[in-house]
Design a protein around this nucleic acid. Structure first.
Lengths: 288, 288
DNA sequence: ATATCAAGTTTCAACTATTGAGACAATTAA
DNA sequence: TTAATTGTCTCAATAGTTGAAACTTGATAT
């Protein structure tokens, strides 16, 4: 309850001092004209992790000064950015939150998956994650935590590296070959822990294994002591639409303990996949 | 000065079956060039409330077919939209969630306000809302609910009409005259309930009252049985940066009961305002 | 089968919005 | 004061956007 403070407050450090080399921005996301360039500015502001001044943005911007300036004006005008008049600092705007709220409700798996997450959470008593792929990264959509209630945006919308998370590997494993290879090529293979996967070959081998069992593991690959099992969520046609995981700590359980939930996890994933499909095609093509 | 000429060509379609006439979209947010137009498409997709096909979007789009088409391509390419390959439906993309997550953490009041909300929630046992203005609307940033834990994006990012919510009125009251009038002019004055404010004059009178007490009420103006008291969050310089409210139901308490929390509410608002200011200017201008 | 219609996609010349070097204004520093 | 930095504006050249029209695809009807 009370320590809900601790997490959120100290996150706002200066520049990238966190051990997080996540390359959020453009992996050759070649600018789709003016619109792409402008959106690129949003990523730059996001990357700073705090409100920033014009010069700082300009410094990182690939576009010349007046161009960057105009983009900032436009985006601010469009409320995609906010300009603090007291400080002259730009930050990401509220319109994004409004849009994201809609995105969460309409577009993502989250609403249909919610009851199933509740169920799994209740049964296991462990932390449950629901995630989706955002390019080469994993984006968390929802979370169930046994210990303390979640706190909104501070959990959903979070991104993580695909190659060293359970959900990430589970989803990657079931992509089509070309898409999968494309994503593998984009992984950083940063060594977060001693157990992190550090090469494409190693990852490919593991993905092949995952394809057989539909279960993937995180063996403390992202954070020490944090382990999980995960499974992909597939449509009946076999397309990956997300992933779920059960996460815990080595202090509490072993990987073998978690493995006991394999069947529950897979059946939950199946149920979510079906529910999502039903929702997309209410009566054999009605929604189309 | 940007002219306020309301040339709204948005005849609300019959497809709006929901009882919510909230005019999310453009109140003459006249397109800032290509970027503005493209972002406008996002609002259109949002407005549908569900994944939609190209034709449907085209139908509502003010731009001709190929232009709309190209925007959809660009936005999809940029992951601001997602295209379901199975159904051909467009929906809001995951990139929005990632950006919103950052926005919530960096830009909004939410992280600094969190501990104070916890405190107030504990003390009152009632539902607490934290909100900010998004144009003429209220955007909820965070929530504390006594009954059940919140569920991420499903609460934060929500928007509501400013003129018939406690936080909305509290914030409007403390805007500068021109900004305030501008916002008043944009309210729909839809009669959600029998107690809804239905005219600008009525609203102005109430705002004047609120300016004296720094407390506003929602007297079942938005939803039957739902009442609240709210207070604006101000910077030391007097600028409105948000609002908080204590919400309850007439089944449980009366408006007079809620009024007893006025001082707690105001002092919490003050604390949040100060904390936000401290955070903006850690040591008399250091962050600048 | 063939025709008909609607949805989705592409083309390309006309045009207009974007672009960015540079000048200027407003701050802050020395 | 001068110098340096940040923020804002201008304007001609250019590059990107624009949208009528034509075309493809797929579904439904005749």
């Amino acid at each position: 309850m009370i320590n809900a403070t601790s997490q959120s407050q100290n996150e706002m450090k200066a520049t990238h001092n966190l051990s997080d080399p996540v390359n959020i921005s453009q992996i050759t996301r070649h600018a789709d004209g003016t619109v792409g360039k402008a959106l690129n500015i949003l990523d730059i502001v996001e990357d700073f992790g705090k409100p920033v001044r014009f010069v700082q943005i300009m410094h990182r911007s690939p576009y010349p000064k007046p161009t960057t300036y105009r983009f900032l004006q436009t985006l601010t005008n469009q409320r995609m950015l906010a300009l603090n008049p007291d400080t002259g600092h730009y930050s990401l705007g509220v319109r994004l939150m409004r849009l994201a709220h809609s995105a969460w409700k309409q577009a993502s798996l989250a609403p249909v998956a919610a009851p199933f997450l509740d169920q799994l959470s209740k049964k296991t008593g462990e932390t449950i994650h629901l995630a989706q792929l955002d390019g080469a990264q994993v984006l968390y959509l929802d979370k169930r935590n046994a210990i303390r209630p979640v706190s909104m945006f501070s959990d959903a919308g979070k991104v993580g590296p695909a190659y060293c998370t359970g959900v990430g590997k589970a989803m990657m494993a079931f992509l089509e070959a070309d898409a999968r290879n494309n994503l593998i090529a984009q992984q950083s293979f940063f060594k977060y822990t001693d157990h992190s996967i550090t090469s494409a070959e190693q990852l490919e081998a593991e993905l092949q294994q995952i394809r057989k069992t539909r279960i993937s593991f995180d063996r403390e690959e992202h954070e020490p002591n944090i382990i999980c099992i995960a499974s992909p969520i597939l449509t009946p046609s076999g397309r990956v639409i997300g992933g779920i995981s059960i996460t815990s700590s080595t202090n509490r359980v072993s990987l073998e303990n978690l493995q006991n939930y394999s069947d529950d996890l897979k059946s939950t994933a199946d149920k979510i996949g079906e529910a999502a499909f039903q929702w997309m095609f209410p009566d054999t093509g009605g929604n189309i």
